[in-house]
Amino acid sequence: MRFLHTSDWHVGRTFHGADLLAEQDAVLAHLADVVTAEAVDVVLVSGDIYDRAVPSAEAVQVANRALARLRRAGAELVITSGNHDSAPRLGAFGDFAAAGGLHLRTAIDHIAEPVLLNDQHGPVAIYGIPYLEPEPSRHALGVPDAKGHNGVLTEAMHRIRGDLATREPGARSVVLAHAFVTGGQGTESERTIAVGGVEQVGGDVFDGVDYVALGHLHGPQTLAPHLRYSGSPLAYSFSESAQRKSVWLVELDAGGLADVRRHELPVPRRLAKLSGGIDRLLTAEEYGDFVDCYLSVTLTDSVRPVDAMRRLRERFPHTVHLDWQPENGNTTATLRYAEAVRGRPDSEIVRNFLDDCRGAPPTGTERKLLGLALESAGRGES
């Protein structure tokens, strides 16, 4: 049996204010092409279908199109809820969806109830563990003394192994889980799931099954041959700009895990970081290849350029983040403003506002305007 392991779609997410629905629709459509080309039997989606518990109508449409394409391509689908999803909403009408090949595992009560599929070697039991918030989950699972994520996932896997022991000998098994497993590397785009300062669980919690399809961390990574993160299909922070997004193609034979291959996904729009003076960034030919990228720009001009974002977007329309770090090391200019003004009288704060914020004193015209402002406030130029 062949699986495609994906996760963390985060449909409806924006990137520094930029709408990503078109990019998400495009890369998720590619998954259906992979299902067809690789004769995939089952698609596993390990949580965070949506970016919000209450997704927009447009986000729901994109997700529905993606699921419909995958089903038309011939694959069964098994989906669990992540920490961004609303488990009750995602799991609504789950019993009816299963009749059409969409198996939703979003309820704690169904953790030990596998999706049972068969190939020429016999049955495969696919278990879905929805994201387990430790405090309510420990009571729902009947283990009030369980500690944090490790405790509730340990109980979930205990139930799964118990059910698996009742299956016919040689039955193979797959588990979907949404968690931060020790050894995984996070990025800037995951929402923390720390409870009491602890969010990680040990990989040995998942021992005893043939393959564990993990979700939550956005970079593709292998913790053990049977224990992997697919990562998100798109980059959701500039910390992911060097990653090659991908999915795992997983093969089970009669003896269990037989093969895992990585399939890299297309990149609808690249991410890049640029640094330098604004005049050079706007004119140098060497930056021409970045015109279509989502950009994070760090300006190094000694004086903060006026209207920098508008000017940058004239050449780089997808600039979404801007920072200023003057190369002359003007530390006063880079202090947080609250620190820069501490202890100064109001008149000095007003006179030096521009100097503090952009690293250059006010011009003659600006000084006159600031003087008039002080006079109108009754404070004068002292």
Rank of each mutant, 00 (worst) to 15 (best):
V152D: 14
V152P: 15
G142C: 01
Y127K: 07
G122W: 06
E133W: 09
R138V: 01
S137W: 13
Y127D: 06
P130S: 04
H149V: 00
R138I: 00
G142Q: 03
Y131S: 07
G148I: 04
N150C: 09
G122A: 04
I126S: 02
P123Y: 04
D145H: 08
K147F: 15
G142F: 07
R138E: 13
P134M: 01
L132K: 06
S137K: 10
V152F: 13
E135T: 11
R138S: 07
Y127N: 08
E133L: 06
E133A: 09
P123C: 02
P134A: 01
G151N: 11
D145S: 11
E133C: 00
A146D: 13
V143K: 08
V124A: 02
P144L: 03
S137F: 11
V143F: 04
G122F: 08
G148Y: 13
G148Q: 10
A140H: 01
R138K: 15
A140Q: 13
G151S: 10
G128Q: 09
N150L: 14
R138G: 06
L132V: 07
L141N: 10
K147P: 13
A140C: 01
Y131L: 03
K147T: 14
Y131G: 02
P144F: 08
A146W: 14
G122Q: 10
V124Y: 06
